[in-house]
Amino acid sequence: MPEMNAESLSIPLTQGMLLAGVLFAFGLIGLLVRRNLIFMLMSVEIMLNAAGLAFIVAGAHWGQADGQVMFLFILTLAAAEVSVGLALVLQLYRHFQTLDADAMSRLWG
């Protein structure tokens, strides 16, 4: 435990995790409540960001760089996910002329 002195002064683990949990809950609520595909993708971004925040908080608490490395991987994942997701949204809009997720409830469009 190298940062024993600094740890007592820094942000407590609970508060950081609470923030991450609140942001994740907002993202989950948005994903479940909103029916617009753009909003649903935004909510997924919020949730991924909250997960990354949890890693950073834990990494800061233990004084290790691993949390930041995990955030980099989450960042990569989010970038790949959003590019493919937005391409799918474009195709769905061209096909259905709407962004309503409920209009796309059938497999054989």
């Binding site: 990569t76 994942l77 970038a79 790949a80 996910e81 590019s83 493919v84 937005l86 391409a87 799918l88 474009l90 195709q91």
Partner: peptide, 13 residues
């Protein structure tokens, strides 16, 4: 992951 993401976004979009 990023390369299939790039190719996939180009192909799907």
């Amino acid at each position: 992951l990023l390369l299939p993401g790039l190719v996939g976004a180009y192909h799907v979009g």
